[in-house]
Design a protein around this nucleic acid. Structure first.
Lengths: 390, 390
DNA sequence: CTGTTAGCGCTTTCAA
DNA sequence: TTGAAAGCGCTAACAG
């Protein structure tokens, strides 16, 4: 019978034996710490090479108490936005010698709590969170990590009550800007494909805001931006024009369809989340309408597809890679001993104006050409080109 | 000075002390093994609860030798195909009590070798691989894992020389089918946006095949499918019509542009990889051409966007979730003691016919209406609908 | 500079 | 049934 330990790989003792040195000496050369004479060092290295030694990271973490591993919890890896974020995290972590464990919760609260536990159990050194369950009363799982001394950094999210570092864009401003473009083009009936899953559609502005306050900060900010733009233009708020979650594409189709069937139908739609745009497009088609003539369109989260649509879509682009990279940076700095700033790090987003916005058909309420003429049509002579404003 | 261990969380000894029992008793109840009397069990549980005990997974793995963790290496998490795969893996792993560590190599060989090492070091129980560097001479890193007794399962990949289980679709057949649809519509100049990064564009069919054989199996299969369809229809192979990697969108634009500028230009393009379609679309626009009238289009890997394009795109859809799920299943079964089948598990893909294929403009070579009339136009009265063939 | 020794937190015989 | 003790592979004092 062969060695009982199977082929689990040689240990440091075996390497030491092979090299004819003490365990500690082998450990020192292989672990890269302490002093070892060149000759012994060489012998150890040779032995390790020969045996195919690989350090057991588990054992190492056990004694040192650190794992050189970051945990990342995202709402949905299948969403390109989070995938991009992740790449940012991954790139800068790797550059600084850290591995990353990714957990996707697929928007499921239970999975989310479980994810935090997994990360705690595996003793990651720090956690980056971009998950879904971060409303007012759903932060216990993060507390658990924090209380154990595991630093947490939020990305694309903020939880004011938690006093953590978070890396975000100015969602409120980005949303306001998008809606302003719509308004400047002459729209007054502007649909809003929003996110949060609230039990029943809020009937008033106040109810909406309340719903927002118990849900994701990000969604709340975007709602406020939408409202800001409306207010500035003295356009009355109409609850019929905002869709609440759950945000499945099918539901978007239904809801936008509803807004399109209203007596005083929407002439523009602003999509607050990634999948909102494909859903809206489907709804348009189903209603036999086209953009930008019948309905103007702006959405969050640019993609390669948005640019090749005909006409190409005006979108808000977040600096996804930078968001992830910055989050990792902040976390790594804390792990390196820096005092947490516990603040919001705000990165710039860009509104990429392409060709999905035009004045409404019934251009009764066209704006005076003075102030803010629709730059999309002015600046984009060729389809596919785009005007960008930060 | 407080406890030096900081807030790393209570250990089993502390729980035992709190409960007034021996360490082993606490370990038995908390670890869920061995016999413990109900009363002591209750005391331990209470103490654990009170102290907020969480087992240290590292320590546990150290003693047991298993981590209940799967490692997954993918070429690029940002690619929706891999993201979908991952979700399949994740779902079935979780259901069977395993965590998963995801490593994305972003198509970088060095990162890939490093990824394998990370997983070995962290002592994962098994590995699922869907990475890029799996050509003929690039399997040493996988060998390393296998030699250590870590089971490996491939997904969307196969390496004949390695004799491993792998979960795939019939790429050759899928590609052939797509090209056949193009041919049936009357096309004979069919461009192929292919993948592998080969130093210089192969000038002959033989060179192409050779290039394929040193690269990813998946790409080789798709090339063969393309060639099969051409051969069956007695269409001569033209090396000018295939684009080799690196597969960046920008490059696709250039290459498809080149094929479009040929004296005898392509009238159809088949894209073998996810990003090929957006690149091709850009090239078309740049050339002032539209689909399906000027150029017919079929691509690999369906998405929400493909369905909302106008006209909607005919695409090959892989069962992404199932691929991932099956891979996890096979691996988990092996870990549970099953004998590895070491075979290819082939899942069905579907060609979703929408509206991006029409007969070529110069319909000189239109096929006899008998055999295979273009089903897309026949079966899809409304844009957005689709005919599916398995 | 090198080797001995004592843990890290858990599981797992083995007696009691 | 329960507790004491050894050990997983590594790091880190501490002598030598």
């Amino acid at each position: 019978m062969p060695t009982d330990r199977g082929q689990a790989g040689p240990t440091i003792s075996e390497v030491a034996a092979e090299a004819g040195v003490g365990r500690a000496t082998a450990a020192r050369t292989l672990g890269g710490y302490g002093y070892v004479s060149p000759e012994l060092r060489a012998r150890v290295l040779a032995a390790a090479e020969k045996l195919g030694y690989r350090a057991n990271a588990l054992a190492r973490s056990m004694s040192t108490g650190v794992s050189h591993t970051l945990g990342v919890i995202v709402a949905d890896i299948g969403n390109p936005f989070f995938a991009g974020l992740l790449r940012g995290v991954s790139d800068t972590s790797r550059a600084r010698g850290f591995d990353v464990i990714v957990l996707s919760t697929y928007e499921n609260l239970q999975a989310e709590v479980a994810a935090t536990d997994v990360l705690i159990d595996k003793r990651v050194d720090g956690v980056i969170v971009a998950s879904a369950a971060l409303g007012r009363d759903q932060v216990a799982h993060l507390r658990a990590a924090i209380d154990r001394g595991i630093p947490v950094v939020l990305v694309d999210r903020a939880v004011p009550s938690l006093d953590l570092d978070s890396v975000v864009i100015d969602n409120r401003d980005a949303a306001r800007q998008a809606v302003e473009v719509l308004i400047a083009a002459g729209h007054r009936r502007i649909g809003f494909v929003w996110g949060p899953p609230v039990p029943e559609p809020p009937a008033t502005r106040r109810e909406l805001l309340t719903a927002a306050s118990r849900n994701l900060w990000t969604d709340g900010e975007r709602l406020r931006g939408y409202l800001d733009a409306l207010d500035d233009a003295h356009i009355p708020f109409d609850p019929q024009l905002v869709m609440v979650g759950p945000k499945t594409e099918e539901r978007v189709v239904t809801e936008v369809g509803r807004m399109l069937a209203l007596p005083d139908r929407v002439t523009a739609v602003f999509c607050s989340e990634t999948d909102g745009m494909t859903g809206s497009l489907r709804a348009l088609r189903r209603a036999g309408l086209s953009y930008p003539e019948d309905v103007a369109l702006i959405g969050f989260d640019d993609s390669a597809w948005a640019a090749v649509m005909e006409p190409p879509l005006t979108m808000i682009a977040q600096p996804v890679h930078e968001l992830g990279a910055k989050a990792a940076e902040v976390l790594l700095d804390i792990l390196a001993g820096a005092e947490p700033a516990r603040e919001m790090h705000t990165l710039r987003s860009r509104l990429i104006e392409r060709a999905s916005v035009a004045p409404p058909r019934t251009s009764a309420s066209a704006p005076p050409a003075s102030a803010s003429a629709p730059p999309a049509s002015a600046a984009a002579p060729r389809a596919g080109d785009a005007a960008v404003r930060p």
